[in-house]
Amino acid sequence: MMLKIIKLARKSPISARIGFVIIVINICAAVFAPVICPFGETEVVGDTWLLASADHLLGTDHLGRDMFTRLIFGARNTIAIAMIITILSFLIGTVTGFFAAIMGGWADLVISRIVDILMAFPTLIFALMVLSVVGTGTLPLIVVIALLDSTRVYRLSRAVAMDIAVMEYVEAARLRGEKLWWLMRDEILPNAMPPLVAEFGLRFCFVFLFIAALSFLGLGIQPPTADWGGMVRENAGAITFGIMTPLYPAAAIALLTIGVNLIVDWFLHIASGLKE
């Protein structure tokens, strides 16, 4: 298994390697944030919107906090929350999706109709409305987005599982008398992995951009916690003075998303190659 991965990595195109480097840098930044950063997350260190200098690699923000420090801590908060949401959404989505595909009939019909309705509603609007009622905060944010996003995961898992469930090896397992859990875990899941892994990457990107958008609208992760979307919002005013401060966190968001997308693209390429 390890050997196979190393072999694949050797053959990987330049784009995938770039993606890999981007992701590794981001993860390191997230994990070692307190070690790397010269200042505290919310520590005010100087004047407002200072330009980049030796002391402040990326200058300071609208309250005079070190931008570089905020950016590193932002990686930590934003990536961690996006990761938690994506994992949660996959847990909900794959379990219900596999369940619906295996059971078929009424169970499938009911779950699918509910999901149809949730999906007929644009995610951003739905999230905005729910947050307007339950109020902003990290926990509601995680639950709401994970639930909404799991509808997409459900659709894919169900479709993939449907294709697998009609395979004769699944029928053979049913005829043997296997229970639901075995069918899900041992027959369907291993065969559904490639599309699900790719989708995990794409969903992560989506969730990540989505949180950034909500934070940018002031409804996501709340200050003073550093978070990339929120940092763009806080510093947006600078742009009209020709100060590029809000572009740094925005670029960081774009960069990480590109990194993940590059890896996913490569992965899809291999997966489709294996099929032929």
Binding site: E168, Y169, E171, L175, D186, N191
Partner: peptide, 18 residues
């Protein structure tokens, strides 16, 4: 269930590839 077993047309899809 045990005493009645089945063999399929296409062995490619009758065995779990994983």
């Amino acid at each position: 269930l045990r005493s009645m077993q089945m063999i399929y047309q296409s062995p490619d899809t009758a065995l779990n590839p994983k």
